[in-house]
Amino acid sequence: MRIKDKIIDRIREILTGGANIEKLKKRGLKVGNNLWLGYGVSIDWTFCELITIGNNCTITSKVHILAHDASTKKHLGYTKIGRVNIGDNVFIGVSTIILPNVQIGDNSIIASGSVVTRNVPMNEVWGGNPAKKICSLDEYLNKHSSQSVITQEDWADENRRKNIIDSWEKNNSEMKYIE
Rank of each mutant, 00 (worst) to 15 (best):
R2Q: 08
I3L: 13
R12W: 13
L15F: 04
L15P: 00
T16G: 10
G17H: 03
G17S: 07
G18T: 08
L24S: 01
K26P: 01
G28D: 11
G28V: 04
K30L: 06
V31K: 05
N34W: 05
L35T: 05
L35S: 08
L37S: 06
Y39I: 12
Y39P: 11
Y39E: 06
V41L: 08
V41S: 06
S42P: 11
E49D: 15
E49N: 15
E49K: 15
T52G: 05
G54T: 01
C57E: 02
S61Q: 12
H64G: 06
L66V: 03
A70V: 05
S71R: 15
S71A: 07
S71E: 02
S71T: 13
T72G: 14
K73H: 08
K73Y: 10
K74S: 15
H75W: 11
H75P: 07
Y78D: 01
T79K: 12
T79V: 12
K80P: 04
K80S: 14
K80T: 14
I81F: 09
G82I: 02
V84N: 12
V84W: 04
N85A: 11
D88K: 01
F91Y: 10
F91S: 00
F91L: 02
I92R: 07
I92Q: 02
G93K: 04
S95D: 13
S95Y: 06
S95L: 07
T96I: 06
I97P: 03
V102P: 01
V102R: 01
V102W: 00
Q103L: 11
I104W: 00
I104R: 05
D106Y: 09
D106V: 11
S108M: 04
I109N: 00
I110H: 06
A111I: 12
S112Y: 07
V116A: 02
T117H: 04
N119Y: 10
N119T: 08
M122P: 13
N123V: 09
V125W: 01
W126N: 00
P130L: 06
K132E: 12
K133F: 08
C135S: 10
E139C: 08
Y140V: 05
Q147A: 03
I150H: 03
T151W: 10
T151L: 07
Q152R: 13
E153F: 05
A156E: 15
A156K: 15
D157C: 11
D157I: 05
E158P: 08
N159G: 10
R160K: 14
R161P: 00
K162M: 11
N163W: 11
N163Q: 14
I165W: 05
W168F: 15
N172H: 15
E174H: 08
M175L: 11
Y177D: 09
I178M: 13
